[in-house]
Design a binder for these strands. Structure first.
Length: 115
DNA sequence: CCATTGACCGGCT
DNA sequence: TAGCCGGCCAATG
């Protein structure tokens, strides 16, 4: 697959901690996974998400509260639908992060995925 | 080794 | 609201 699977595993692990009905930003996941300022890496990792495992990739959106896919693409629609199913509302193409954005609790923050 | 490529981000017009 | 710009840095070829 790729050279450093471990990096991706950590990122996927962080993504997996985002609860149903909430969304997190790429930068946020980067921090949680232990890679501050590597938001782009998170996007890169999600792009290579294996389909055989269940990872809530759709709960990750950009810091502007928007889906990072071209507005009329299929992936965009899939992500939008999945979020809609979880009750995340979009207002003029954007999610109000102060409303649906997820903030880890202290316990969640301290929880470290096994290496 | 070097250059390019990102499902990004934040500040500033 | 809408772009533009510079910064970011692992992965890739």
């Amino acid at each position: 697959m790729v050279k450093s699977d471990d990096t991706y595993r950590k990122i996927w692990g962080a993504v997996a901690t985002v609860p149903f009905g909430r969304v997190a930003t790429y930068g946020q996941i980067a921090v949680l996974a232990g890679f501050p300022r590597h938001a782009r890496l998170v996007g890169y990792a999600l792009h290579h998400t294996p389909d055989d495992v269940d990872i809530p990739w759709h709960r990750i959106i950009n810091a502007q509260g928007r889906i990072s896919f071209p507005k009329d693409s299929e992936p965009y629609k899939r992500q939008l639908d999945r979020l809609a199913e979880e009750g995340v509302e979009f207002i003029r193409g954007r999610v109000d992060l102060s409303r649906h954005g997820w903030q880890p609790t202290l316990d969640e923050w301290l929880w470290k995925p096994p290496d």
